[in-house]
């Protein structure tokens, strides 16, 4: 019995893919392509990230996967929050939860502007 069930069971468990190796990415848009009070989704390896330009002009980046049930968040200029449409979770621009069901804040990334390139990397 085990000789049949083990291979069959093991077959449906997918092989472990290597973790996304991306520690740093250069975004496919220039700093002047994101306006104040605007957010853009970008690819951070195989995961989504979100870049937000604050009203002060500062750029901040976070993981875009909601910590509640994994939906991709968006920036809402009307309230100045990062917002998850799935279950109405709100995050402030430090990535902290301010409203709704997410159990923890968004992972924050480091943003560097080098000439006309935006480079985002995971924190130390």
């Amino acid at each position: 019995m085990a000789a049949v069930l083990y291979p069959a069971g093991r077959y449906i468990v997918p092989p472990k893919a290597g973790e996304s190796a991306a520690g740093t990415v250069t975004l496919p848009f220039a700093p002047d392509e994101i306006r104040e009070n605007e957010g853009k989704i970008f690819k951070f390896g195989s995961r989504p990230g979100i870049l937000v330009r604050l009203a002060t002009g500062e750029l901040r980046a976070f993981s875009a996967a909601c910590t509640h049930l994994g939906c991709i968040v968006q920036y809402r200029p009307d309230v100045g929050h990062i917002w998850c449409a799935c279950h109405n979770g709100h995050f402030d621009l430090n990535g902290h939860v301010v409203q709704g069901p997410p159990p923890e804040g968004l992972e924050t990334y480091v943003v560097n502007v080098r000439g006309d390139q935006i480079v985002v990397s995971k924190g130390a």
């Binding site: 989704i41 970008f42 690819k43 989504p48 979100i50 875009a64 939906c71 991709i72 968040v73 968006q74 998850c84 449409a85 799935c86």
Partner: peptide
């Protein structure tokens, strides 16, 4: 699109 935000009213 796996890299688009969840639409409002989903």
């Amino acid at each position: 699109d796996p890299f688009a935000p969840a639409p409002a009213g989903i």
